[in-house]
Amino acid sequence: MDLPKFKYHIDPEGNDVIEESDITCVCCGEKRGYIYTGPVYAIEDLDDSICPWCIANGKAAKKYDAEFSDSHPLLSSKISKEITEEVTQRNPGYVSWQQECWLSHCNDACEFHGDASEQDVNNASDATKKQWMLENEADEKFWNTVTDGYYPKGDTAFYKFKCRHCGLVLLGWDCS
């Protein structure tokens, strides 16, 4: 069975939040061969127990009043309620050191592409660096400090996002 496609999370299996599994989904009661292993914000403990289909169709969010990423960053960026709900309730989240922060641009949520590669960071465009410095209230000296020696899945984390409209690559940032 093909995994559902998500508008804002391009490769959740490649980003290690959807894994092959023989676990029965607590939401639909089916064994579909895959389970979601990313963050879940709900009253019940739903870790590693929801299938990707119940995320995609919104059933898990509705049944458990669950979100799969924090809505605050999108809402504070004035992204519409409809888009925010699609990202947080019908889209897999991603794992970060502290708390994921879904980025936005051109009045829309961005696509999440996973951990930024060394090339993504070392060859970041001026527009990407400028946006990162603006988001993090930083200057170029600080950019150079935090990117020096960067490697994916290290103590300093950069997450690659891409604007769905203009194509600008944005980098989320977190530290252990």
Rank of each mutant, 00 (worst) to 15 (best):
N15M: 08
K129I: 14
G154H: 08
T88P: 08
K63A: 09
E20Q: 01
D22M: 03
Q98E: 09
V87C: 00
L103F: 06
C27Q: 04
E86W: 12
T128D: 04
Y64S: 02
D70R: 10
S125K: 13
C175H: 15
C54P: 02
D115E: 14
C163S: 08
I55K: 04
K129H: 00
S76M: 09
D139C: 04
Y94V: 10
T147E: 09
V26K: 07
A61V: 09
V40T: 13
T37D: 05
H72K: 15
I35P: 00
T24A: 05
Q119V: 14
N91L: 10
H165K: 15
Y150V: 12
T156L: 15
V146L: 06
S71R: 13
G93T: 06
C27F: 02
A56N: 05
P92S: 09
W53Y: 12
G93Y: 10
E86D: 09
S77D: 14
Y36Q: 03
D48T: 07
N144R: 14
Y94M: 07
D126T: 11
W132E: 03
P12G: 01
S96M: 13
S77P: 00
K141Y: 11
V26A: 00
H113L: 15
C106W: 08
W53S: 04
D148T: 08
D108W: 06
